[in-house]
Amino acid sequence: MLFVQLLLGGVQNGALYALTAAGFALIFGATKVFHVAHGSAFTLAGYVFLYGWTHNWNSALSSLAAVAVAVAFGIGMERLVYRPIQRHEGSFFTVFVAAFGVSIVVQNLVGVFAGRGFASIDTPLSNASEVLPELFLADVFWVAIIVALVMFVALTLFLSRTNAGVGLRALAQNPDLLRAYGLSSSRLSMLAFALGSALVAPAAILTAMTTGLNEAVGNHVMLLSMASTIVGGVGSLRGAALAGLLLGVAESVVLVFLETQWASAASFLVLFGFILFKPSGMFGAAVAR
């Protein structure tokens, strides 16, 4: 039963990782920006929802505000940080350092304004009850899975059925060709950042209910999103999402065999192994060295 319990717990977390990882992969695939500040969008969205919740806003309104702030943050990063650097043909690592600087700023601003340390939303949703002997599940488990599924269906439809979505996919494949057809790659990058950032909001809100927030909560999320993107195979949204799920499950299920303190290393061992033995990831094309 321990195994099933840990597996289901891992699936719940993995569903949330899948969302943030898909956001990261979408941004990275379309714009080739390694968006290290992705976790900051998560933190901001979570705290905005928390603010709304503690001020008795309608939860739909709070969620909308959370999405809006995440999207605004993503677009702001693209406009104010990434685009100027890329105009200078700044290297991949210039972008990395700049984004890292932003994530430090966001983390500390949240600390100053929202207070440091633990904050959570008190809701019966996250309170587990015994559904089978020895098996505890909270309603939030179902919410997480349904939300993740709905988001993915919507995203897939958007990418395959709308012009902008097709444009985004084209941007990932061949930006030059896109320009030749007169589509604006600049507007499409903004769209990628907006969509990718919006995907973190539901995960952030659910995290606020389950594990709670602190100002550094985004870091772990960012690392896992990045790891999932690589493990899933760069350029594959489906791969990133599945990898996110897989890493979430790995983090949890590893406790069947190992002591609790080793959980954190598990997902990164998976990542390291993939890079060594199958660098193209689960669904990626072969990697040029």
Binding site: F28, F34, F92, F96, L223, M226, A227, I230, V234, F268, L269, L271, F272, I275, L276, P279, V287, R289
Partner: peptide, 12 residues
């Protein structure tokens, strides 16, 4: 590997 892949590996 190189590029982003290597960064991710070193991170791991």
């Amino acid at each position: 590997v190189r590029g982003e892949y290597f960064v991710a590996a070193s991170l791991g």
